[in-house]
Design a protein around this nucleic acid. Structure first.
Length: 130
DNA sequence: CAATTGACTTGAT
DNA sequence: TATCAAGCCAATT
């Protein structure tokens, strides 16, 4: 029945979940990998919907293109993000910035597509695509 | 359907 | 290098 693809929101979660520990991704990069080169804001919006006590999505592995934490309105959440990243080995520069050239996750297009396909399959409730 | 919002990004000054 | 403004997309109301 689920002819409609899962919401952009779901795609974001699916991809973010595949971000390995110790690596980070930028909002714009996530959007780009999902096929929306200008959907950076939507990615942040999607992650903002999480901010739960214990979300199953490593939202903390997503930062802005500058490699800095961009969370607003909740300094506590921002602090938690940094703490989680540092706990995974991510190093912050003297300017509270992450070296994107070192910690940026760079999956291949095939990997990303496989992630989306798999996520879609789950969204269908285990139905085959046919 | 139209208007508003937001954890972004890029270009110009 | 730092600051300001405009563009973009999806969800919410």
């Amino acid at each position: 029945m689920a002819d409609s693809p899962m919401s952009f929101n779901q795609q974001v979660y699916a991809l973010v979940r595949r971000i390995p520990a110790g690596r980070v991704l930028s909002y714009g990069r996530v959007a780009l990998l999902l096929g929306v080169p200008r959907g950076a804001r939507s990615v942040g919006w999607a992650l903002g919907s999480l901010t739960g006590p214990e979300p199953e999505v490593p939202w903390h592995r997503v930062v802005n293109a500058q490699g800095r934490i961009s969370i607003k309105g909740s300094p506590d959440v921002a602090a938690r993000q940094r703490a989680k990243l540092e706990a995974e080995g991510v190093v912050f520069d003297d300017n509270d910035t992450i070296a994107m050239n070192k910690f940026l996750w760079q999956p291949s297009a095939l990997d990303v597509e496989a992630i989306i396909q798999h996520a879609r399959d789950q969204a269908r409730g285990g139905e085959n695509d046919g």
